[in-house]
Design a protein around this nucleic acid. Structure first.
Lengths: 245, 245
DNA sequence: CGTACGATTGAGAGACTTCAACAAACGTGG
DNA sequence: CCACGTTTGTTGAAGTCTCTCAATCGTACG
């Protein structure tokens, strides 16, 4: 469905997201809203872009839940990041012409496809937006690094606490979380592939976190009764997200 | 020592590096060479920038060997990437004002400090260079992702084979490797912190790789008798480095 | 020629995996 | 609205990769 990002102008997810990491002028906000897009809905467990693709547009998440992953020769999967409304998981495709990983929908997601050409036109007219998007990709990289630390040096228990903290903070930054929790349509199997663990162990770690009163997880509803404690358990310091304020 | 990057113009490491990932016009090459820099030498095991720093310049590696790392509360260290001549490990500081990790010299290294202001001036005059540096940070991110895959889903043996492949390819791209090997001033302890392993296990894995005839490692001299085999052992596919050609 | 740092070895322990079975939750069609 | 099948979550037991501790060896360098 062709349109611009004007719909939901007030609470446009991209504007919310960009505002959370940088200051935008009115002109820049307008330029973003004027972007022509094609909105497409992806069902859960379908790919939005695949490893090896050469795409000519970027995918902006409007609603839903998305992840970046790669499948190894032996069939194992590593999830490298979760993306929520306002994120552009394949922004890199603007400068890296072949995708080196896949992007898939974890839940039914509405995606705005933005032509590279439209983005480039906008960035040429608004160099400051170019810097802001660059900044966004740098924050993406900072998240990869933080996950690396977890995978390399933190226990399963810490890792799980850490992702939950990250997701809560990011969801809150775009207005999708309550004060003490949010909705996470992520299965234990998906957590396993994100944290480099087996599904079985994820299950046990979640039970430990529950036993310790750090989380309440019913279905996809996450509640965090004691934020300080969960943060401490995961050694979570939001500095790497480089949010404003 | 103040100067510009003109010295070693022909084989300037930054030009070599940028040329390996994108095409530069003569004007752009000149703009790069005209960058005013301050050259500083860092001894092995000293920090170039520290976690939490707000710096006003970027560090270009001219010679030596550098890594990005973070120390955890319990003293554990995770190395998140190695940087070789031509790399700018903290290019992110141009847009992310507080460092979220440290950068340290693994061997005596000569570093060219480039003021953010000088870089910004150059990028404003040469928007294409801006895109090329953005591309560079995106490749950096791609390397983090590839390491994540290793940390999360590959065995110690595979991981070690994989880093060795990555380093050989990157060293060759800037002319610092022979056809079948290169010099890597990295201790087993540093490999351990990079691969999320213990030093002891790194030692055993290296012995396994030697036993299997995949590498010859004497001191810091790496030789790769059978490139195909090492690549296969590490499931190494250089696509994520996004080199030209 | 000692000292220090890096490499190597052995033995025991632990975190996490794999396999396999079962229970619960969910969506869908009749 | 219930029956049914598929997906997701849970549990137990055995196995393994990798860790920790601790000692020894090699070698470069002052």
């Amino acid at each position: 469905m062709k349109s611009t990002l004007h719909e939901q102008a007030a609470s446009n997810p991209l504007l919310r997201k960009l505002s959370s990491i940088a200051d935008l002028s009115d002109e820049e906000r307008q330029a973003v809203l004027d972007l022509p897009v094609t909105v497409k809905v992806f069902e859960a467990d379908t790919d939005i872009i695949q490893d090896g693709d050469r795409s000519s547009d970027c995918a902006l998440v409007l609603s839903g839940f998305v992840c970046r992953y790669k499948i190894l020769p032996d069939g194992k999967r590593q999830i490298m990041g979760f993306y929520i409304p306002g994120d552009i998981p394949d922004l890199q495709s603007l400068h890296l012409h072949v995708m080196d990983s896949s992007v898939g929908a974890l839940a039914r997601s509405s995606i705005a496809l933005i032509r590279h050409q439209s983005l480039r036109d906008m960035l040429r007219r608004h160099p400051n937006l170019s810097d802001i998007l660059w900044r966004d990709t740098l924050i993406d990289a900072a998240m990869f690094r933080e996950w690396m630390i977890g995978l390399g040096r933190r226990s399963a228990y810490q890792r799980m606490a850490h992702v939950l903290c990250e997701l809560q903070v990011r969801m809150k930054a775009v207005g999708l979380a309550r004060e003490n929790g949010c909705e996470l349509p992520i299965t234990q199997n998906e957590f396993a592939d994100a944290l480099g663990l087996s599904t079985v162990h994820v299950n046990r770690v979640l039970q430990d976190l529950r036993r310790d009163g750090l989380i309440v997880l019913r279905g996809s509803m996450l509640e965090i009764p004691n934020w300080e404690a969960l943060q401490a358990a995961g050694e979570f310091d939001p500095a790497y997200l480089h949010l404003k304020r």
